[in-house]
Design a protein around this nucleic acid. Structure first.
Length: 479
RNA sequence: GCCCGCAUCGUCUAGCGGUCAGGACACCACCCUUUCAAGGUGGUAACCGGGGUUCGACUCCCCGUGCGGGUACCA
């Protein structure tokens, strides 16, 4: 099996396009075949400088390495269409010779008027073949320098193919336009280029998004005209946003690389994308890359479009974070805890790992341990369900415990504080919240006692005393 | 307008004529617990509508409806 991903360099990749790339990659890896990357830059007007590099970076980051393509030599190169224009012209010539294509000098205005008229008459919009019946004149016009395009002469009859995810799909050729193959600037259109490239690159399975279904008959007509065996077609469903509309750049679909910035793991993103339109058939849903390669088959792709659910990604990201060996997490956290030492991260990881949804959460969670923080009025202290007397008792017990026992025996300390809380009649779970606020500035955070051990006795005592002081200040006007 | 595709809980999905329609996310409750998480247990929640076919339809067929896509010298 040979599959390919053929993006056009018109901007960064979003989840929708990368999901198609992932399916192609997985199919190839599962079968032990090759995955090729090809850049389809035949439209110089839509080209966005730098996006090609972005595409390569995205694929590399996700671990979807290609066997042939840009930066990787292969026997079927070059893998950038703008470098292959000569091949397209040669093949176009074959089509002309065989009568499968013809030149056309119709102006954009005429074409537009023609379509308006067809629409008015409830007919399918397609080229009326005016130039087909006057090829001699067209030849003369061309040699006089008039711009011309080469059109596919769509054969009569019907076109049918067995799509790997849709089953039998068929079209009446009469509804299909005589597609432009060579633009007047000499560049091929997508339709000519894909067919020529997929054939020359020996692609066995064309895996692409289902918006290509209507143009597949054109491609099949081309394969027939060249007398080539067509590949299997695999049209995968669209990925929709929460609004039910197809993900697209112009609707603000996120650059996949941004997810890295936000603290998502490549393995989690890959896992989440694989589950969009594909299922293993079992109840398992948490997969590593290699497990996916093992189980993925094109036949199990679900044909309906899928809504991308960020909550699902969040969940999977947490799972993948917990799947990571501690030392790998220490590495992964470097970006999100800038300036932290490896040792610092090593002691933070046990506290962080069960509490992170994204790696970026580490920064928020660890902040009170890495920096001093200031009290402000937004901090409720003592916190809900804790009265001042309990807060005082708990903090005093904690201070005393640190002063006398240090931070070596957290268990003993915990018991000591619990006892103090129970003395005041409070539930330990509530009372402890006062301690959290005192040390971390928030009632919800990393384990306090461990946090204190991390910041050390001196800083701990300092924070506890400040909090204790605050209780006194409050107490005065109250009594 | 014309053409094509799709249709199971809110979301992702399993199902391939006979199931109490299963799982996961999210949500709710409880348990565990030094907070919050993580983890565990349980719960709420779905076959778009109408006709057929069949002893029997979520499943097969037709028609609607809804949604998506195509209809370019864009991919």
């Amino acid at each position: 099996m040979r599959t390919r991903f053929a993006p056009s360099p018109t901007g960064p990749l979003h989840v929708g396009s990368v999901r198609t790339a992932l399916f192609s990659w997985l199919a190839a890896r599962h079968a032990g075949g090759e995955f090729v990357l090809r850049i389809e830059d035949t439209d110089q007007e839509r080209y966005i400088p730098g996006s090609e590099a972005l595409i390569l970076e995205t694929l590399q980051w996700l671990g979807l390495e290609w066997d042939e393509g840009p930066e990787v030599d292969g026997p079927h190169g070059p893998y950038i269409q703008s470098l292959r224009t000569e091949m397209y012209r040669e093949h176009a010539e074959i089509l002309v010779q065989r009568g499968a294509a013809y030149w056309c000098t119709c102006t954009a205005e005429r074409l537009a008027a023609m379509r308006d008229e067809q629409r008015r008459r409830s007919e399918p919009t397609r080229y009326d073949r005016r130039c087909l019946t006057r090829q001699d004149e067209v030849d003369a016009e061309r040699s006089a320098g008039m711009p011309a395009v080469l059109r596919l002469r769509m054969p009569d009859g019907t076109t049918e193919w067995d799509d790997l995810v849709r089953g039998a799909v068929s079209f009446d050729n009469a509804d299909i336009d005589d597609q432009v193959l060579l633009k007047s600037d000499g560049f091929p259109t997508y339709h000519l280029a894909v067919v020529v490239d997929d054939h020359l690159m020996r692609i066995s399975h064309v895996i692409r998004s289902d918006e290509w279904i209507p143009s597949t008959p054109k491609h099949l007509a081309l394969y027939a005209a060249f007398e080539w065996t067509p590949p299997r077609f695999v049209h995968v469903p669209a990925v929709l946003g929460a609004d039910g509309l197809k993900l697209s750049k112009r609707r603000g679909a996120r650059n996949v690389l941004d997810y890295g910035e936000m603290g998502y793991l490549p393995s989690a993103i890959v896992n989440a994308m694989a589950l969009l339109g594909w299922s293993s058939g079992s109840d398992e849903e948490l997969f590593t890359q290699s497990q996916l390669c093992e189980r993925f088959t094109l036949e199990r792709i679900h044909p309906a479009p899928a809504v991308f659910d960020p909550a699902r990604l969040d969940h999977l990201n947490g799972q993948h974070i917990r799947l990571l060996p501690a030392e790998a997490l220490v590495e992964a956290l470097e970006y999100h805890l800038p300036g932290s030492s490896k040792d610092t991260r090593r002691s933070l990881v046990p506290m962080l790992r069960d509490r992170m949804v994204t790696l970026a959460d580490a920064a928020t969670l660890a902040d009170p341990l890495l920096h001093e923080w200031d009290w402000d009025d937004a901090i409720e202290f003592p916190p809900r369900k804790v009265d001042a007397a309990t807060a005082r008792a708990v903090i005093d017990a904690c201070i005393d415990s640190v002063q006398h026992g240090g931070l070596g025996d957290l268990d003993a300390m915990r018991e000591r504080i619990k006892a103090a809380a129970e003395n005041t009649g409070a539930k330990p779970r509530d009372a402890f919240r006062a301690l959290y606020v005192a040390v971390l500035g928030t009632p919800a955070g990393l384990p306090v006692l461990e946090s204190m051990a991390f910041i050390g006795a001196e800083r701990s005592l300092e924070r506890l005393r400040t909090a204790r002081q605050r209780l006194n200040v409050r107490k005065i006007p109250a009594s």
